[in-house]
């Protein structure tokens, strides 16, 4: 039986211990052997280790890797219209967008789109706020750079064809 009492701050629960151990249990050794056999069986259980550089983890669609810009497969043009909402919402102030006009239907495009990967916190707010579904979180989690300048990703690194982001785009459509 568990007894609960309220002393004004927290409920304390009385722990019941089995008081009367029989002789075998008090001898301690049989119990140790039980424990040893459990430990021994554990040796043959399957291992959880990923041998990382050889075997890479495949993230699910819900994974938030580095943010990328979506390029439409048919037109070959990025979806972004340089509205600047992502830059506005970014809590880490990692995104910088410079807009320009274009002859295309969308009329505006980002002349410059930079994400500072040292600042990015992978929160995914830019993706959430984007009206054009133009910036999404990819599955990429291996980011390496050797200088601060290198960590600023421009359009050359951000543009990614939509076909490569199918998983994420479908996931977004399902969850919205």
């Amino acid at each position: 039986m568990t007894q609960t009492k309220i002393d004004g701050r927290a409920k304390t629960r009385e722990i019941k211990r089995k008081a009367n151990l029989n002789l075998l249990e008090r001898l301690y050794l049989p119990e140790i052997f039980k424990g040893l056999s459990i430990t021994f069986r554990q040796i043959f259980k399957p291992k959880f280790t990923f041998e990382y550089p050889d075997v890479k983890w495949q993230p699910p669609a819900s994974f938030r890797g580095r943010p990328v810009l979506v390029v439409d497969d048919e037109t070959g043009v990025e979806r972004c219209v340089a509205c600047g909402l992502c830059a506005r919402v970014c809590p880490a102030l990692a995104i910088e967008v410079v807009a320009d006009e274009t002859e295309l239907d969308k009329e505006r495009y980002p002349k410059k789109f930079e994400i500072n990967m040292l600042r990015c916190i992978y929160c995914g707010l830019c993706e959430e706020v984007c009206p054009e579904e133009a910036i999404v979180m990819s599955k990429e989690y291996e980011l390496v750079f050797t200088s601060r300048e290198e960590a600023i990703f421009g359009k050359d690194k951000l543009l990614t064809p939509a076909s490569k982001l199918k998983d994420r785009l479908e996931f977004l459509r399902k969850m919205r």
């Binding site: 430990t39 554990q42 040796i43 043959f44 259980k45 399957p46 291992k47 959880f48 280790t49 041998e51």
Partner: peptide, 8 residues
């Protein structure tokens, strides 16, 4: 030790 802890 690793095997017992499900590691390699």
């Amino acid at each position: 030790s690793a095997f017992i802890q499900d590691r390699l």
